[in-house]
């Protein structure tokens, strides 16, 4: 079977440094249907380098859809057009000869561009550090059955824990709000018995850190959940709100 090849026109955001003014540069790229989207960019980069031009910088690591490192907005969609798929898992069979593709970085004050398509997501790290943990005494590992966990609690917690911290939710949100990510991290622990002792402090601390990071305010549009490659749903935002409200009432 012949492999179908294609010629594409890419409009790629290029930005020299965080403070530089970026702009779109148009490239002709060759690809075939078996390539992944990132491989298509790799091939383009090789040809750029062979011509002595700067390759396009983009973030990636596992290329298996599990690490959360990759991310770019393709024709207005974070991670491209495939549902529940990171951009590293997007394949070129989606595209055909002559297609035009616009590629932009996540656009948010909280995620400053480092270079080209590569953004600084350390804001997410700081949100995690502020409450994404449980305090446990050191010593021997507790018995697995020492703390019973209800089946539903385990399931719901794992649903939230599926978040890979990619930032597509912020990129998709018309308000550049980080509520889906923060909600997922809060729900992950607050749904488990192990998370209960610090439940309300966690909600408060993580939300206060989120506020520090120049993200916008949630209007419950739901664009985040639609863009999320891991199927995180809006119920984590409701839980975030509920636990914040409870924390405020308790704090007095």
């Amino acid at each position: 079977m012949a492999t179908s090849t294609m010629k594409l026109k890419l409009h790629v955001w290029r930005q020299e440094s965080p403070s530089a003014r970026g702009g779109f540069v148009t490239y002709e790229a060759d690809a075939n249907e078996h390539m992944s989207f990132l491989e298509m960019l790799d091939v383009l980069n090789e040809s750029l380098e062979s011509r002595g031009e700067e390759p396009i910088v983009f973030d990636h690591d596992c290329r298996e859809g599990i690490c959360g490192t990759c991310g770019m907005v393709i024709n207005g969609r974070p991670h491209g057009p495939w549902e529940r798929t990171t951009v590293c898992q997007l394949h070129m069979r989606e595209y055909g000869d002559g297609d035009q593709i616009w590629i932009e970085p996540w656009r948010a004050k909280g995620f400053p561009v480092v270079k080209d398509l590569f953004v600084d997501r350390s804001a997410f790290d700081r949100i995690l550090q502020s409450g994404g943990f449980i305090s446990a005494n050191s010593g021997g590992a507790p018995d697995a059955n020492a703390i019973p966990v209800k089946h539903e609690a385990a399931e719901e917690s794992m649903d939230a824990a599926a978040c890979i911290g990619c930032g597509a939710c912020v990129a998709a949100c018309p308000n550049a709000s980080a509520m889906l990510f923060t909600g997922a991290k809060i729900a992950h622990l607050n749904r488990l018995p192990q998370g209960q002792p610090e439940r309300y402090d966690r909600a408060l601390d993580m939300i206060l850190q989120m506020e520090e990071e120049a993200f916008g305010s949630c209007t419950n549009h739901g664009a985040c959940a639609e863009a999320c490659p891991k199927g995180i749903e809006l119920d984590v935002i409701a839980m975030l709100n509920r636990d914040y409200l409870a924390a405020v009432v308790k704090a007095g």
Partner: peptide, 29 residues
């Protein structure tokens, strides 16, 4: 106050837009 926060939070605007899940009601608040 929230609208201003959200407007400031985007920074550079997207060139291409795709209306992800945004219905007329939520878009016109």
């Amino acid at each position: 106050s929230l609208t201003r926060q959200s407007w400031a939070a985007r920074g550079t605007k997207y060139k291409k837009k795709d209306s992800l899940n945004i219905d007329a009601a939520s878009n016109t608040m």
